[in-house]
C-alpha cells in the first residue's frame, strides 16, 4: 500500500507538472474591448456581435476628470449613464485631462483619489456591477509626473486588495521611461496608436503607422511594468480649412464621403469638399479638405507582429479601442482574434 501510494503520488506529480508547464506555454491573453461613449446603450447589432465574440473583458469609461466650468476646480464630467445592463465584471476607466492635473493642488491629491474612488464605487453599485479593476488614463508629461504618480499611489492605498490598479501607457512613455517615469500601478495598458501628430499636414496616418511604431520600440525589454496592449479600431477624418487643422470627425468612413456631388477624392484617403454641406453635425465649406484615417486589418497584423517581438512578456489581455456602432460593420471576430494571437506570439 505504501509503495502504491508513493507511485500514485509520483505519477500525479508528474502529470501536474506536465499540465502546468504545458499550460504556461499555451496561455492566451484574454480579448478585451473598450467602451468610451457617454451612454451604455448597445443596439441589437452591437449586442449580437459582442456576444459572438466569446468571453470578453470590458474596459468601460465611467467619467472624465476635467476642469469645472469656471476653470478653478476639477470635477467629473460626462458621467456614464446606461439603459442596458453593464457586464457583471469590468474595469472602470477614468480619463484625466492634463489641464485638470495642472490645476489640482498637490496636497489635495489624496482627497481627490478618495472622491474619485467613491464615485466609481457608487456608480458600480448603482449599475449592479463588480469593479475588478480601476484604470486611470492620462497622458502625463514629465512636469506632471510627480502629481500623477502621487494620485496613483493614493489610489493604491484606497483600493481593496482584489481590485487591480492599472494605467494607460503611451509608446513614448516606455521609450523615454527614464524621463517620464514608471507609474506606481499593478499593470500598464500600452496604447499602440496616436503615433503621429494629427495636426501636421504631411502625416499619412496619425493613428498608427508601422514605420513610426518601430521608432518607439526601445526599452520594452527592461520596462518594469507588465503590459497589456490595446489596438485601435477607430477611424476619423481630419478636417482642414484654409491650411489650418480644424477638428477631427469621428467616426468617419469612405462611405460617408462617397457622395461625389459633395466630395471629390484625389485618392482613397484624401477628399475635398465640392460644395458646402453638413457632415456628421459639422458644417463644411467648399474647399475644405479631409484626410481619412483608419488602420486596416493588415496594418494591425503587421504592427502586432512587430510589437510581439519587442514585448518582454506576453500580455494577459489584448484590447481594442473602442466598441461603437461601426465595429460590427467593419470588423469580424476572426480579425480581432488573429490580431490577439499575433500580439501574443
Amino acid at each position: 500500500m505504501h509503495l502504491i501510494a508513493k507511485v500514485t503520488f509520483a505519477v500525479w506529480l508528474g502529470l501536474s507538472s506536465v499540465a502546468f508547464y504545458g499550460c504556461q506555454s499555451d496561455v492566451q491573453p484574454r480579448l478585451a474591448l473598450y467602451h468610451w461613449q457617454g451612454q451604455w446603450a448597445p443596439n441589437e447589432a452591437m449586442r449580437t456581435w459582442a456576444e459572438g465574440l466569446g468571453p470578453t473583458w470590458w474596459y468601460v469609461r465611467f467619467f472624465d476628470l476635467d476642469l469645472s466650468a469656471d476653470g478653478r476646480d476639477v470635477e467629473p464630467i460626462s458621467q456614464l449613464s446606461w439603459t442596458a445592463p453593464l457586464p457583471d465584471t469590468l474595469a472602470a476607466v477614468v480619463f484625466i485631462t492634463t489641464r485638470a492635473l495642472e490645476v489640482v493642488p498637490q496636497h489635495t491629491l489624496a482627497t481627490l483619489a478618495s472622491r474619485m474612488y467613491r464615485l466609481l464605487d457608487t456608480m458600480a453599485q448603482a449599475a449592479g456591477v463588480q469593479l475588478a479593476e480601476v484604470q486611470l488614463d492620462c497622458d502625463w508629461t514629465p512636469s506632471l509626473r510627480a502629481k500623477y504618480f502621487k494620485l496613483l499611489s493614493a489610489f493604491q492605498q484606497i483600493l481593496s486588495p482584489h481590485i487591480v490598479l492599472s494605467a494607460t501607457i503611451r509608446l513614448h512613455q516606455v521609450k523615454w521611461a527614464a524621463r517620464t517615469g514608471v507609474p506606481p500601478v499593478d499593470k500598464g495598458m500600452l496604447m499602440v496608436y496616436h503615433t503621429g501628430d494629427v495636426r501636421r499636414r504631411g502625416v499619412r496616418n496619425a493613428i498608427l503607422q508601422t514605420e513610426v511604431l518601430k521608432q518607439y520600440l526601445y526599452g520594452f525589454d527592461t520596462y518594469p511594468l507588465p503590459l497589456d496592449v490595446v489596438w485601435p479600431l477607430f477611424s476619423w477624418g481630419v478636417l482642414w480649412r484654409e491650411g489650418r487643422f480644424i477638428r477631427l470627425i469621428s467616426p468617419l468612413s469612405a462611405q460617408d464621403l462617397a457622395d461625389s456631388s459633395r466630395f471629390a477624392s484625389s485618392d482613397k484617403l484624401h477628399f475635398s469638399v465640392r460644395r458646402a454641406t453638413w457632415l456628421k453635425g459639422y458644417y463644411l465649406y467648399s474647399g475644405d479638405s479631409i484626410r481619412l484615417e483608419r488602420v486596416p486589418f493588415d496594418t494591425l497584423q503587421q504592427a502586432a507582429a512587430i510589437l510581439a517581438d519587442a514585448l518582454a512578456r506576453t500580455p494577459t489581455r489584448v484590447a481594442f479601442y473602442h466598441f461603437d456602432t461601426t465595429v460590427p460593420q467593419l470588423w469580424t471576430h476572426d480579425q480581432l482574434y488573429q490580431i490577439l494571437e499575433t500580439t501574443a506570439r
Binding site: L67, R99, T141, W176, D197, R199
Partner: peptide, 24 residues
C-alpha cells in the same frame, strides 16, 4: 542622445501638448 531626442520631441510636438494650459 536622450537629451537630443527629448529636445527634438519638444520641438516636434505641438505646444498644446506641452503647455497644457487649458482654456486660458
Amino acid at each position: 542622445v536622450k537629451g537630443v531626442l527629448a529636445a527634438t520631441l519638444l520641438i516636434w510636438l505641438p505646444p498644446q501638448l506641452l503647455t497644457n494650459c487649458g482654456p486660458f
